[in-house]
């Protein structure tokens, strides 16, 4: 796929001039990128480059200091530096969004829109079973209220949720562990469970934060197929952060590279691979 055709595609997620500044430290600097529908896009960069911060801005954990994030062509997050932030703001486009309505949805509202994520350091609900972990993620989309839940008049809905959960688990090959505590699973399966949990929220866009971290080569290899598989099956768009270059080059349709919060390169895997700026940024870690 060339950059030309990419532009013609409908965008699932679009970041425009996103800057995240913590006090005087700029973690993400003027990041603009596009994630087209149905593609697998990777965000890579050395340690501390600001990848996870960018993810946290997209998912609402942080409110960016400046910038616009659109989801399915609708503005989702829009901020500009205000008050004390305006005085210490170091980034560009300070006035581009000023005066426009500020949008700072909470993470749950963003998930409601159809963005689901996994975490770099796995965050499963540790007192719950594998089954309950996935089932609980279905809570958001369930048609019920507290009273129907207490009085059990939502049995149909509950049954549907349980069936769907079971299907998901079967598909991920986790059904034999369904009554185990989530944290008792081996690491690779915990990552899988996290993806299954994210899928349970019926997302349109899936954000994977270092899905292969801590996996052995075999598991990493399987993961690539797996990501393709779920993308096709659930009609997903995937946006991922990864350190395993093999995996990234293998599965991504397009790659953005950032370092010190700013984009240093972008392109299809082959282009990025041979970009000397990327090699420089990665020098010493490139063989990873």
């Amino acid at each position: 796929m060339s950059a030309e055709t990419k532009k013609n595609q409908e965008s699932a997620l679009h970041l425009e001039n996103v800057t995240m500044q913590f006090g005087g430290v700029v973690s993400v600097n003027n990041l603009t990128l596009d994630v087209p529908k149905g593609k697998i896009i990777a965000l890579i960069g050395p340690n501390g480059a600001g990848k996870t911060t960018a993810f946290n801005c997209i998912t609402g954990v942080y409110q960016p200091t400046n910038g616009l994030i659109s989801f399915m062509s609708q503005p989702m997050v829009r901020t500009y530096p205000r008050g004390k932030d305006a005085k210490i703001y170091k980034g560009e486009h300070k006035d581009t969004y000023a005066g426009q309505p500020v949008l700072t949805p909470t993470p749950d509202q963003i998930t409601q829109l159809g963005i689901a994520r996994t975490f770099q350091n796995i965050r499963l609900w540790k007192s719950m079973t594998v089954f309950d972990n996935v089932l609980t993620a279905k809570h958001m989309r369930a048609k019920q209220n507290v009273f129907s839940a207490i009085l059990r008049t939502n049995m149909k809905e509950e049954k549907r949720m349980r069936e769907e959960t079971m299907d998901l688990l079967k598909e991920q090959g986790l059904e034999s562990f369904k009554d185990e505590l989530a944290t008792s699973l081996p690491y690779g399966l915990q990552r899988r469970l996290e993806i299954a949990r994210a899928l349970a929220t019926n997302p349109k866009l899936l954000l994977l934060d270092e899905p292969a971290a801590g996996m052995n080569p075999q598991e990493t290899f399987e993961l690539a197929d797996f990501v393709h598989e779920i993308r096709d099956k659930y009609d997903l768009t995937v946006f991922l952060i990864e350190h395993h270059m093999d995996l990234v080059m293998n599965i991504s349709d397009y790659i953005y590279v950032i370092d010190f919060g700013s984009e240093i390169s972008q392109g299809v895997p082959e282009v990025v691979q041979s970009d000397h700026k990327v090699i420089e940024a990665y020098l010493g870690i490139a063989e990873d």
């Binding site: 954990v61 909470t106 993470p107 749950d108 998930t111 689901a116 965050r123 609980t136 809570h139 929220t201």
Partner: peptide, 9 residues
């Protein structure tokens, strides 16, 4: 944080 990310307000 996980709950919020899974859409639980």
């Amino acid at each position: 944080i996980a709950s919020e990310a899974m859409g639980i307000s």
